[in-house]
Structures are given as structure tokens and as C-alpha cells.
Amino acid sequence: MEILQVVGLGLVATIISIVLKSQRPEISIQISIITGVIIFALVAANLSAVLKLLEGIANKVDIDLVYVTTIIKIIGIAYISEFGAEVCRDAGESAIAAKIEFAGKILIIVMAAPIILALLNLLVEILP
């Protein structure tokens, strides 16, 4: 059961981080970063299985592969920008976190632009 592993790891890392927070705050932040990385590594296999399932469904329903890969890219950008933003907010640097999220949103809009254009063209054709 991965979930037990993940929760156990998170609790132990939180306790260690609190122990070190008073003496060495910079090391406690690095412990929270490394815990995030390890938990992602634990669930990475399942995540890739979910993504392959998504692609399989898209192929079966015969959706154009470009849309699905764009969606998967957007999910990746969202995950990484959220990871960085939360670590910065945890360290007390909410301004940097806001900038990271801002950049993430811009990149997602850029990534989604072709899909939006395709949708608009489709609408123009349909409407009389």
C-alpha cells in the first residue's frame, strides 16, 4: 500500500523538519523539498500508468493526439509550478511563489492557445 508509505514518510519528515527548524531553518526547508521529490518518485509509476490510460482512451475515441499531448503537457507544467510555488511559500517567500505561479499560468495559456484557436474556427464554421 503506497499510501501508508507516503503518509509515514511525510510525518517523519515533518517531525525532523520541525526539530531542525529552530537551529538550521535552511536545512529544514531542504528536508521538505527532498520529501516532495521522494513522494513523487514513489507515485511516478502509477502516474505514468494513468497518463497511458488517458492516451489509450483518446485513441479509442479517435481524438486527435495533439490535444491529448497538450493536456498532458499542461498537467506537467501545472504540477511543477505548483511544486516550486508551495516550497517557496513554505519557506515564507510568498512573493517568489506568486511569481512562479504567474509564470506557470502564462506558459499554460501559451500551450493552450492552438486548441482555443481550433475551437473558435470550429465555432465559426458551425454558426451560420
Binding site: 531542504q30 521529490v37 518518485a41 503537457k73 506537467g76 504540477y79
Partner: peptide, 30 residues
């Protein structure tokens, strides 16, 4: 000694973070 400890931990962290970025890059095809 504080700086030395910080640098050692930082090196380990950077290695793990680069692993994370490579995994995400291959998985989400970024």
C-alpha cells in the same frame, strides 16, 4: 562548518531535484 554542511546538503538536494525534473520531462513530454 555551517556553510560546509549547507553545501553538502545542497549538493545532494540538487542531484535529487535534477532526477525529479528529468522524470517529469520524460513523463509529461515537456
Amino acid at each position: 562548518t555551517t556553510l560546509a554542511g549547507l553545501i553538502v546538503v545542497l549538493l545532494m538536494i540538487v542531484k535529487e531535484i535534477s532526477n525529479l525534473f528529468d522524470t517529469v520531462k520524460t513523463m509529461f513530454r515537456l
